[in-house]
Protein backbone atom coordinates (compact mmCIF):
# COMPACT_ATOMS: atom_id res chain seq x y z
CA UNK A 1 0.00 0.00 0.00
CA UNK A 2 1.37 3.43 -0.89
CA UNK A 3 2.11 6.05 1.74
CA UNK A 4 -0.64 8.25 0.32
CA UNK A 5 -3.20 5.50 0.70
CA UNK A 6 -2.04 4.75 4.21
CA UNK A 7 -2.29 8.43 5.07
CA UNK A 8 -5.79 8.52 3.63
CA UNK A 9 -7.05 5.60 5.71
CA UNK A 10 -5.40 6.91 8.85
CA UNK A 11 -6.90 10.35 8.29
CA UNK A 12 -10.26 8.77 7.61
CA UNK A 13 -10.12 6.97 10.93
CA UNK A 14 -9.29 10.19 12.74
CA UNK A 15 -12.50 11.69 11.33
CA UNK A 16 -14.43 8.62 12.47
CA UNK A 17 -12.89 8.96 15.93
CA UNK A 18 -14.02 12.58 16.06
CA UNK A 19 -17.57 11.67 14.99
CA UNK A 20 -17.74 8.85 17.52
CA UNK A 21 -16.51 11.26 20.14
CA UNK A 22 -19.50 13.49 19.39
CA UNK A 23 -21.72 10.47 19.98
CA UNK A 24 -20.14 9.87 23.38
CA UNK A 25 -17.90 6.95 22.44
CA UNK A 26 -14.60 8.75 22.72
CA UNK A 27 -12.53 6.04 24.38
CA UNK A 28 -13.29 3.46 21.75
CA UNK A 29 -11.40 5.10 18.94
CA UNK A 30 -9.02 7.47 20.63
CA UNK A 31 -7.19 4.58 22.21
CA UNK A 32 -6.90 2.85 18.90
CA UNK A 33 -6.48 5.45 16.28
CA UNK A 34 -3.11 7.07 16.74
CA UNK A 35 -0.68 6.89 13.91
CA UNK A 36 -0.10 3.18 13.78
CA UNK A 37 -3.42 2.05 15.13
CA UNK A 38 -2.15 0.82 18.48
CA UNK A 39 -4.93 -1.48 19.68
CA UNK A 40 -5.92 -2.41 23.18
CA UNK A 41 -6.05 -6.13 22.61
CA UNK A 42 -6.15 -8.99 25.05
CA UNK A 43 -2.96 -8.28 26.94
CA UNK A 44 -2.99 -4.49 26.83
CA UNK A 45 -0.32 -1.97 25.91
CA UNK A 46 1.02 0.63 28.31
CA UNK A 47 0.49 4.04 26.71
CA UNK A 48 1.20 7.67 27.48
CA UNK A 49 0.70 11.20 26.18
CA UNK A 50 3.69 12.88 24.54
CA UNK A 51 3.54 16.70 24.51
CA UNK A 52 5.73 19.00 22.44
CA UNK A 53 5.51 22.73 23.12
CA UNK A 54 7.54 25.85 22.48
CA UNK A 55 7.71 29.02 20.43
CA UNK A 56 8.19 29.88 16.78
CA UNK A 57 10.26 32.98 15.99
CA UNK A 58 11.88 34.60 13.01
CA UNK A 59 15.52 33.65 12.47
CA UNK A 60 16.32 37.22 11.47
CA UNK A 61 14.90 39.45 14.18
CA UNK A 62 13.72 36.87 16.78
CA UNK A 63 10.17 38.23 16.61
CA UNK A 64 7.39 35.81 17.46
CA UNK A 65 5.42 34.49 14.49
CA UNK A 66 1.70 33.95 14.95
CA UNK A 67 -0.42 31.81 12.61
CA UNK A 68 2.14 29.09 11.89
CA UNK A 69 0.54 25.64 11.60
CA UNK A 70 2.32 23.12 13.84
CA UNK A 71 1.49 19.47 13.29
CA UNK A 72 2.48 16.26 15.12
CA UNK A 73 0.86 13.08 13.83
CA UNK A 74 -2.83 14.01 13.90
CA UNK A 75 -2.70 16.95 16.24
CA UNK A 76 -2.28 20.38 14.72
CA UNK A 77 -2.53 23.93 16.09
CA UNK A 78 -1.66 27.44 14.98
CA UNK A 79 0.83 29.53 16.95
CA UNK A 80 -0.70 32.34 19.04
CA UNK A 81 0.29 36.01 19.11
CA UNK A 82 3.41 35.15 21.13
CA UNK A 83 4.33 32.38 18.66
CA UNK A 84 3.51 29.69 21.22
CA UNK A 85 2.20 26.24 20.40
CA UNK A 86 1.49 22.89 22.03
CA UNK A 87 0.78 19.58 20.27
CA UNK A 88 0.29 16.11 21.70
CA UNK A 89 0.14 12.44 20.71
CA UNK A 90 -0.86 9.22 22.43
CA UNK A 91 1.56 6.33 22.01
CA UNK A 92 3.22 3.34 23.62
CA UNK A 93 4.90 4.44 26.84
CA UNK A 94 8.48 4.03 25.67
CA UNK A 95 11.19 5.94 23.80
CA UNK A 96 9.53 7.59 20.83
CA UNK A 97 10.40 9.92 17.97
CA UNK A 98 7.83 12.29 16.46
CA UNK A 99 8.05 14.40 13.34
CA UNK A 100 6.81 17.93 14.04
CA UNK A 101 6.18 20.20 11.05
CA UNK A 102 5.89 23.98 10.91
CA UNK A 103 4.03 25.53 7.98
CA UNK A 104 3.24 29.13 7.14
CA UNK A 105 -0.38 28.95 6.05
CA UNK A 106 -1.53 32.57 6.35
CA UNK A 107 0.24 33.92 3.29
CA UNK A 108 1.79 37.38 3.63
CA UNK A 109 0.02 38.07 6.90
CA UNK A 110 2.58 37.96 9.72
CA UNK A 111 5.34 37.69 7.11
CA UNK A 112 6.23 34.81 4.80
CA UNK A 113 8.41 32.04 6.14
CA UNK A 114 9.87 28.80 4.80
CA UNK A 115 8.35 25.59 6.11
CA UNK A 116 10.43 23.53 8.52
CA UNK A 117 10.28 20.23 10.35
CA UNK A 118 12.17 18.50 13.12
CA UNK A 119 12.27 15.10 14.76
CA UNK A 120 11.55 15.32 18.47
CA UNK A 121 13.13 12.43 20.34
CA UNK A 122 11.82 11.24 23.71
CA UNK A 123 14.59 9.01 25.06
CA UNK A 124 13.62 6.92 28.12
CA UNK A 125 10.95 9.47 29.04
CA UNK A 126 9.70 9.93 32.59
CA UNK A 127 5.92 10.03 32.83
CA UNK A 128 3.78 11.78 35.41
CA UNK A 129 0.10 11.64 36.29
CA UNK A 130 -0.59 8.03 35.28
CA UNK A 131 -3.76 6.35 36.42
CA UNK A 132 -1.89 3.35 37.85
CA UNK A 133 -3.28 1.39 34.96
CA UNK A 134 -2.27 1.08 31.31
CA UNK A 135 -2.09 4.88 31.01
CA UNK A 136 1.30 5.88 32.41
CA UNK A 137 0.55 9.62 32.20
CA UNK A 138 2.34 12.25 30.16
CA UNK A 139 5.73 13.65 29.31
CA UNK A 140 6.72 16.83 27.52
CA UNK A 141 9.55 18.50 25.63
CA UNK A 142 10.15 22.12 24.76
CA UNK A 143 11.17 22.76 21.15
CA UNK A 144 11.77 26.37 20.08
CA UNK A 145 11.99 26.92 16.36
CA UNK A 146 13.40 29.73 14.20
CA UNK A 147 11.89 30.06 10.73
CA UNK A 148 13.73 31.62 7.86
CA UNK A 149 11.91 34.49 6.06
CA UNK A 150 11.29 33.80 2.41
CA UNK A 151 12.46 36.35 -0.11
CA UNK A 152 9.70 38.47 -1.64
Amino acid sequence: MTKIKKGFFRGYNVIIAALMSLLGFTTACEQSVDEYGVPMPEYGVPSATFIVKGTVKSSVNTESIPGIKVKMIYDSVQTDEQGRYQVRAQDIADSQTFLVTFEDIDGAENGTFADADTNVVFEDPQFTGGDGNWNLGETEKEVNIRLKPEEE
Binding site: K5, K6, F9, N13, M20, C29, G37
Partner: peptide, 11 residues
Amino acid sequence: YDRYRSNETRL
Protein backbone atom coordinates in the same frame (compact mmCIF):
# COMPACT_ATOMS: atom_id res chain seq x y z
CA TYR B 1 -16.97 1.75 13.76
CA ASP B 2 -17.66 -0.67 10.88
CA ARG B 3 -15.88 1.76 8.59
CA TYR B 4 -13.08 2.25 11.11
CA ARG B 5 -12.61 -1.51 11.31
CA SER B 6 -12.53 -1.77 7.55
CA ASN B 7 -9.86 0.94 7.31
CA GLU B 8 -7.79 -0.73 10.01
CA THR B 9 -8.04 -3.99 8.09
CA ARG B 10 -6.76 -2.37 4.92
CA LEU B 11 -3.85 -0.85 6.83
